[in-house]
Protein backbone atom coordinates (compact mmCIF):
# COMPACT_ATOMS: atom_id res chain seq x y z
CA UNK A 1 0.00 0.00 0.00
CA UNK A 2 1.28 3.39 -0.88
CA UNK A 3 -0.83 5.36 1.61
CA UNK A 4 0.82 5.82 4.96
CA UNK A 5 -1.29 4.34 7.73
CA UNK A 6 -1.95 7.14 10.17
CA UNK A 7 -5.74 7.05 10.09
CA UNK A 8 -7.85 4.62 12.04
CA UNK A 9 -9.44 2.99 9.02
CA UNK A 10 -8.92 -0.69 8.16
CA UNK A 11 -6.41 -1.65 5.48
CA UNK A 12 -8.93 -2.28 2.72
CA UNK A 13 -10.50 1.19 2.80
CA UNK A 14 -8.98 4.30 1.22
CA UNK A 15 -9.93 6.63 4.05
CA UNK A 16 -12.11 7.24 7.10
CA UNK A 17 -14.92 8.63 5.02
CA UNK A 18 -15.24 5.49 2.91
CA UNK A 19 -15.19 3.34 6.02
CA UNK A 20 -17.80 5.42 7.85
CA UNK A 21 -20.19 5.55 4.92
CA UNK A 22 -19.81 1.79 4.35
CA UNK A 23 -20.59 1.10 7.98
CA UNK A 24 -23.63 3.35 7.85
CA UNK A 25 -24.99 1.71 4.69
CA UNK A 26 -24.42 -1.69 6.27
CA UNK A 27 -26.37 -0.65 9.35
CA UNK A 28 -29.29 0.64 7.32
CA UNK A 29 -29.45 -2.63 5.42
CA UNK A 30 -29.36 -4.51 8.69
CA UNK A 31 -32.27 -2.41 9.93
CA UNK A 32 -34.17 -3.37 6.77
CA UNK A 33 -33.72 -7.04 7.64
CA UNK A 34 -34.96 -6.32 11.18
CA UNK A 35 -38.08 -4.62 9.90
CA UNK A 36 -38.73 -7.57 7.58
CA UNK A 37 -38.24 -10.00 10.45
CA UNK A 38 -40.98 -8.22 12.37
CA UNK A 39 -43.10 -7.83 9.26
CA UNK A 40 -43.77 -11.57 9.31
CA UNK A 41 -45.27 -11.23 12.77
CA UNK A 42 -47.27 -8.19 11.70
CA UNK A 43 -48.75 -10.25 8.87
CA UNK A 44 -49.57 -13.02 11.35
CA UNK A 45 -51.23 -10.36 13.51
CA UNK A 46 -53.33 -9.08 10.60
CA UNK A 47 -54.40 -12.53 9.42
CA UNK A 48 -55.40 -13.83 12.85
CA UNK A 49 -57.19 -10.59 13.67
CA UNK A 50 -59.19 -10.73 10.45
CA UNK A 51 -60.07 -14.39 11.10
CA UNK A 52 -61.34 -13.69 14.62
CA UNK A 53 -62.15 -9.98 14.97
CA UNK A 54 -64.49 -10.36 17.96
CA UNK A 55 -62.00 -12.48 19.86
CA UNK A 56 -59.32 -9.89 19.16
CA UNK A 57 -61.46 -7.14 20.59
CA UNK A 58 -62.17 -9.00 23.79
CA UNK A 59 -58.69 -10.37 24.31
CA UNK A 60 -56.88 -7.11 23.65
CA UNK A 61 -59.03 -5.41 26.29
CA UNK A 62 -57.18 -7.59 28.81
CA UNK A 63 -53.95 -5.62 28.27
CA UNK A 64 -53.14 -2.74 30.58
CA UNK A 65 -52.97 0.36 28.40
CA UNK A 66 -51.62 2.48 31.26
CA UNK A 67 -48.51 0.33 31.56
CA UNK A 68 -48.21 0.36 27.77
CA UNK A 69 -48.39 4.15 27.69
CA UNK A 70 -45.77 4.49 30.40
CA UNK A 71 -43.45 2.26 28.43
CA UNK A 72 -44.07 4.23 25.25
CA UNK A 73 -43.09 7.43 27.03
CA UNK A 74 -40.00 5.80 28.50
CA UNK A 75 -38.85 4.60 25.08
CA UNK A 76 -39.51 7.90 23.33
CA UNK A 77 -37.49 9.67 26.01
CA UNK A 78 -34.63 7.21 25.53
CA UNK A 79 -34.70 7.79 21.77
CA UNK A 80 -34.34 11.50 22.43
CA UNK A 81 -31.39 11.08 24.77
CA UNK A 82 -29.60 8.74 22.36
CA UNK A 83 -30.07 11.33 19.61
CA UNK A 84 -28.53 13.91 21.94
CA UNK A 85 -25.61 11.56 22.54
CA UNK A 86 -24.95 11.38 18.77
CA UNK A 87 -25.13 15.17 18.60
CA UNK A 88 -22.68 15.44 21.50
CA UNK A 89 -20.25 13.17 19.68
CA UNK A 90 -20.56 15.21 16.48
CA UNK A 91 -19.65 18.44 18.26
CA UNK A 92 -16.84 17.06 20.37
CA UNK A 93 -13.36 18.32 19.55
CA UNK A 94 -10.50 15.84 19.30
CA UNK A 95 -8.95 15.10 22.70
CA UNK A 96 -11.97 16.43 24.55
CA UNK A 97 -13.55 14.19 27.18
CA UNK A 98 -16.69 12.22 26.21
CA UNK A 99 -18.42 12.75 29.55
CA UNK A 100 -21.57 14.19 28.01
CA UNK A 101 -21.90 11.21 25.67
CA UNK A 102 -21.35 8.84 28.60
CA UNK A 103 -24.05 10.53 30.67
CA UNK A 104 -26.63 10.52 27.89
CA UNK A 105 -25.96 6.88 26.98
CA UNK A 106 -26.18 5.87 30.64
CA UNK A 107 -29.57 7.58 30.88
CA UNK A 108 -30.73 5.80 27.71
CA UNK A 109 -29.73 2.42 29.10
CA UNK A 110 -31.51 3.30 32.34
CA UNK A 111 -34.69 3.97 30.36
CA UNK A 112 -34.31 0.58 28.68
CA UNK A 113 -34.09 -1.02 32.13
CA UNK A 114 -37.21 0.83 33.15
CA UNK A 115 -39.00 -0.49 30.08
CA UNK A 116 -38.03 -4.06 30.91
CA UNK A 117 -39.16 -3.69 34.52
CA UNK A 118 -42.62 -2.51 33.45
CA UNK A 119 -42.72 -5.37 30.94
CA UNK A 120 -41.82 -7.79 33.71
CA UNK A 121 -44.84 -6.67 35.75
CA UNK A 122 -47.10 -6.93 32.73
CA UNK A 123 -45.88 -10.42 31.89
CA UNK A 124 -46.18 -11.71 35.44
CA UNK A 125 -49.73 -10.37 35.60
CA UNK A 126 -50.64 -12.19 32.37
CA UNK A 127 -48.95 -15.38 33.55
CA UNK A 128 -50.81 -15.18 36.86
CA UNK A 129 -54.13 -14.81 35.05
CA UNK A 130 -53.29 -17.62 32.64
CA UNK A 131 -53.64 -15.32 29.65
CA UNK A 132 -51.07 -17.27 27.68
CA UNK A 133 -50.42 -18.97 24.36
CA UNK A 134 -51.81 -22.24 22.97
CA UNK A 135 -51.55 -25.18 25.33
CA UNK A 136 -50.70 -23.10 28.38
CA UNK A 137 -53.88 -21.09 27.90
CA UNK A 138 -56.06 -24.20 27.92
CA UNK A 139 -54.37 -25.42 31.08
CA UNK A 140 -55.61 -22.33 32.91
CA UNK A 141 -59.35 -22.34 33.66
CA UNK A 142 -58.95 -18.80 35.01
CA UNK A 143 -57.97 -17.58 31.56
CA UNK A 144 -61.39 -18.61 30.22
CA UNK A 145 -63.05 -16.85 33.16
CA UNK A 146 -61.11 -13.66 32.44
CA UNK A 147 -62.17 -13.62 28.84
CA UNK A 148 -65.80 -14.24 29.78
CA UNK A 149 -65.58 -11.22 32.00
CA UNK A 150 -64.09 -9.37 29.04
CA UNK A 151 -67.00 -10.40 26.83
CA UNK A 152 -69.43 -9.17 29.44
CA UNK A 153 -67.80 -5.78 29.43
CA UNK A 154 -67.20 -5.52 25.69
CA UNK A 155 -70.50 -6.83 24.35
CA UNK A 156 -72.71 -6.38 27.48
CA UNK A 157 -73.62 -10.09 27.45
CA UNK A 158 -73.55 -12.65 30.20
CA UNK A 159 -72.06 -15.94 29.10
CA UNK A 160 -71.46 -17.63 32.40
CA UNK A 161 -74.48 -19.92 32.34
CA UNK A 162 -74.10 -21.73 29.04
CA UNK A 163 -70.35 -21.85 28.66
CA UNK A 164 -69.75 -24.46 31.31
CA UNK A 165 -66.75 -26.73 30.72
CA UNK A 166 -69.10 -29.64 29.83
CA UNK A 167 -70.86 -27.54 27.23
CA UNK A 168 -67.61 -26.36 25.70
CA UNK A 169 -66.27 -29.91 25.60
CA UNK A 170 -69.47 -31.15 23.93
CA UNK A 171 -69.42 -28.36 21.41
CA UNK A 172 -65.80 -29.03 20.59
CA UNK A 173 -66.38 -32.76 20.11
CA UNK A 174 -69.33 -32.17 17.80
CA UNK A 175 -67.70 -29.51 15.69
CA UNK A 176 -64.54 -31.61 15.47
CA UNK A 177 -66.62 -34.56 14.24
CA UNK A 178 -68.03 -32.23 11.61
CA UNK A 179 -71.62 -33.36 12.15
CA UNK A 180 -74.73 -31.30 11.81
CA UNK A 181 -75.20 -31.82 15.52
CA UNK A 182 -72.44 -29.33 16.12
CA UNK A 183 -74.40 -26.63 14.35
CA UNK A 184 -77.58 -27.80 16.08
CA UNK A 185 -75.98 -27.60 19.45
CA UNK A 186 -74.94 -24.03 18.84
CA UNK A 187 -78.45 -23.05 17.78
CA UNK A 188 -80.05 -25.03 20.56
CA UNK A 189 -78.12 -23.34 23.28
CA UNK A 190 -77.63 -19.97 21.73
CA UNK A 191 -80.41 -17.93 20.24
CA UNK A 192 -78.11 -15.93 18.00
CA UNK A 193 -75.01 -16.62 15.97
CA UNK A 194 -73.29 -13.81 17.83
CA UNK A 195 -73.64 -15.81 20.95
CA UNK A 196 -71.91 -18.79 19.35
CA UNK A 197 -69.23 -16.43 18.16
CA UNK A 198 -68.66 -15.23 21.66
CA UNK A 199 -68.15 -18.78 22.81
CA UNK A 200 -65.60 -19.26 20.05
CA UNK A 201 -64.05 -16.05 21.26
CA UNK A 202 -63.39 -17.57 24.62
CA UNK A 203 -61.90 -20.67 23.05
CA UNK A 204 -59.57 -18.81 20.72
CA UNK A 205 -58.31 -16.10 23.01
CA UNK A 206 -55.02 -17.96 23.13
CA UNK A 207 -54.27 -16.82 19.55
CA UNK A 208 -54.19 -13.18 20.61
CA UNK A 209 -51.90 -13.91 23.52
CA UNK A 210 -49.69 -16.08 21.32
CA UNK A 211 -49.21 -13.17 18.94
CA UNK A 212 -48.83 -10.75 21.87
CA UNK A 213 -46.08 -12.78 23.49
CA UNK A 214 -44.28 -13.39 20.19
CA UNK A 215 -44.27 -9.72 19.21
CA UNK A 216 -43.40 -8.28 22.59
CA UNK A 217 -40.99 -11.14 23.33
CA UNK A 218 -39.05 -10.60 20.11
CA UNK A 219 -39.11 -6.86 20.76
CA UNK A 220 -37.90 -7.47 24.32
CA UNK A 221 -34.95 -9.47 22.98
CA UNK A 222 -34.15 -6.50 20.75
CA UNK A 223 -34.29 -4.16 23.73
CA UNK A 224 -31.72 -6.34 25.48
CA UNK A 225 -29.50 -6.43 22.37
CA UNK A 226 -29.84 -2.65 22.03
CA UNK A 227 -28.83 -2.18 25.67
CA UNK A 228 -25.74 -4.32 25.15
CA UNK A 229 -24.76 -2.38 22.04
CA UNK A 230 -25.20 0.94 23.82
CA UNK A 231 -23.28 -0.34 26.84
CA UNK A 232 -20.38 -1.24 24.53
CA UNK A 233 -20.49 2.23 22.96
CA UNK A 234 -20.55 3.69 26.48
CA UNK A 235 -17.37 1.83 27.38
CA UNK A 236 -15.68 3.24 24.25
CA UNK A 237 -16.94 6.72 25.13
CA UNK A 238 -15.51 6.40 28.61
CA UNK A 239 -12.13 5.91 26.95
CA UNK A 240 -12.70 9.19 25.14
CA UNK A 241 -12.74 7.67 21.67
CA UNK A 242 -15.25 9.89 19.93
CA UNK A 243 -14.89 13.32 18.35
CA UNK A 244 -16.36 15.14 15.40
CA UNK A 245 -14.43 13.15 12.77
CA UNK A 246 -15.01 9.74 14.32
CA UNK A 247 -18.30 8.82 15.93
CA UNK A 248 -19.55 5.89 13.79
CA UNK A 249 -20.26 3.51 16.72
CA UNK A 250 -22.35 6.14 18.53
CA UNK A 251 -24.31 6.82 15.40
CA UNK A 252 -24.88 3.15 14.54
CA UNK A 253 -25.84 2.28 18.11
CA UNK A 254 -28.24 5.20 18.02
CA UNK A 255 -29.75 4.02 14.74
CA UNK A 256 -30.34 0.58 16.19
CA UNK A 257 -31.94 2.03 19.28
CA UNK A 258 -34.26 4.20 17.20
CA UNK A 259 -35.40 1.06 15.38
CA UNK A 260 -36.16 -0.71 18.67
CA UNK A 261 -38.15 2.34 19.65
CA UNK A 262 -39.93 2.58 16.31
CA UNK A 263 -41.10 -1.03 16.44
CA UNK A 264 -42.61 -0.37 19.85
CA UNK A 265 -44.38 2.70 18.46
CA UNK A 266 -46.20 0.28 16.12
CA UNK A 267 -46.72 -2.46 18.71
CA UNK A 268 -48.30 -0.21 21.29
CA UNK A 269 -51.39 0.92 19.33
CA UNK A 270 -51.75 -2.41 17.52
CA UNK A 271 -51.83 -4.46 20.70
CA UNK A 272 -53.09 -2.14 23.42
CA UNK A 273 -55.35 0.38 21.70
CA UNK A 274 -56.92 -1.29 18.65
Amino acid sequence: MSTIITHEHAHHFYDNEQQASSAKLGMWLFLVTEVLLFSGLFVAYTVVKSLHPEMWRVASSQLDWVMGSVNTLVLITSSWTVALAVRAAQTNEKGEKNSQIVGLLAFTILCAFGFLIVKYFEYSHKIHDGLLWGKSYFNHPEAIEHLKEGIKQTFSMDVTALSSPEFLAGLKAHTAAGTHDGQHLIHHYASTVTYADTLMTVEQGHLFFGVYFLLTGLHGIHVVIGMSVLAWVLVLAQKGRFYKDYYTPVELGGLYWHLVDLIWIYLFPLLYLV
Binding site: W133, G134, H206, L214
Partner: peptide, 8 residues
Protein backbone atom coordinates in the same frame (compact mmCIF):
# COMPACT_ATOMS: atom_id res chain seq x y z
CA UNK B 1 -45.94 -23.82 16.87
CA UNK B 2 -44.28 -27.08 17.87
CA UNK B 3 -42.71 -25.99 21.14
CA UNK B 4 -45.39 -23.69 22.55
CA UNK B 5 -48.45 -24.73 20.54
CA UNK B 6 -49.14 -21.18 19.37
CA UNK B 7 -51.74 -22.41 16.87
CA UNK B 8 -51.35 -19.74 14.20
Amino acid sequence: ERVMGIGI
